[in-house]
Design a protein around this nucleic acid. Structure first.
Lengths: 143, 143
DNA sequence: TGGCTTATTGCAAAAAGTGGCAGGAAGGTG
DNA sequence: CACCTTCCTGCCACTTTTTGCAATAAGCCA
């Protein structure tokens, strides 16, 4: 497993929640996805290990993880929602409208913008996983 | 009603679609929302006027409007999707996590960031309606 | 370890969202 | 204005997601 945050059990407990086998299993399944995984993929992996786990548990657990900040979810706009284990570096995503490819981008690029927003609107933006749509280099060249 | 774009009928026809009472009603309902409205709110408003309108019609129509550029949809990340009538100026939103208040921000603030993304990643971002979460001025003061 | 409290789970049912289809209506034509 | 073509709508069936509830088990304390 590749939990970047090995204290995940600690995080769950600290928030007053319990560490259950189901939760561990689901978190592992999200990690196995490497980059982004869809809910369906997570479900398949989880069921492979323990077929008794219910869909509703998966939904609830995933939501919990997102709330706790262990997992980030990103709606790609295609109706598909991606889940990804939180990585140590804050980052965002670029998603190509044409080919669907995703790239990660550094948070630094957005920090400037956040700073400006703060200066002009006194609003402290803290969105930690933004998805920008557009057209990637390859697809631009194809034009 | 407050359709910023009064030619909306024209837009629909120009794209080869028909102007039906249902479509007009739904567009009105989105406008009534003023700022952001959720799908559920639009549905409620529509049904109030004409209870015979089907769910699927609402979904289809909303998707059509988004495609036509009459309405923008923005995933807030909370699972809720907001719909908003297109305004003449490109803008984005700030949503306070505490009080839920929304503010509009100029697109210019983001353009810089888009430019940098393009320079570093050769990715042409064209997201036209971003939602940034954070804490607004008032809620910061309350701390 | 045994017992207690209460969060969590699985199940079942409801709600939300999607797709196919036949009848009905919009808009063009004569 | 009547007709005709084709798009739209409402209905129905189905998939996906959410919610209520009783039984179960995690975590705490003695």
């Amino acid at each position: 497993m590749t939990h970047y945050n090995m204290d995940y059990e600690q995080v769950i407990r600290a928030a007053g929640h319990r560490v259950t086998p189901q939760r561990v299993l689901i978190l592992d399944a999200v990690c196995e996805g490497g980059g982004h995984t869809t809910l369906g993929e997570v479900y398949a992996r989880v069921r492979q290990v323990d077929p008794s786990i219910d869909r509703s548990t998966l939904y609830r657990t995933l939501k919990l993880f997102v709330d706790l900040g262990l997992v980030v979810s990103a709606d790609t706009g295609n109706g598909e929602v991606y889940y990804e284990i939180v990585k140590p570096h804050r980052h965002h995503h670029l998603v190509c409208r044409r080919c669907g490819k995703e790239e990660e981008i550094e948070h630094a690029l957005l920090q400037n913008m956040f700073d400006q927003v703060f200066q002009q609107y006194s609003f402290k933006a803290d969105t930690d996983h933004l998805v920008l749509f557009g057209v990637c280099k390859e697809c631009q060249d194809l034009t």
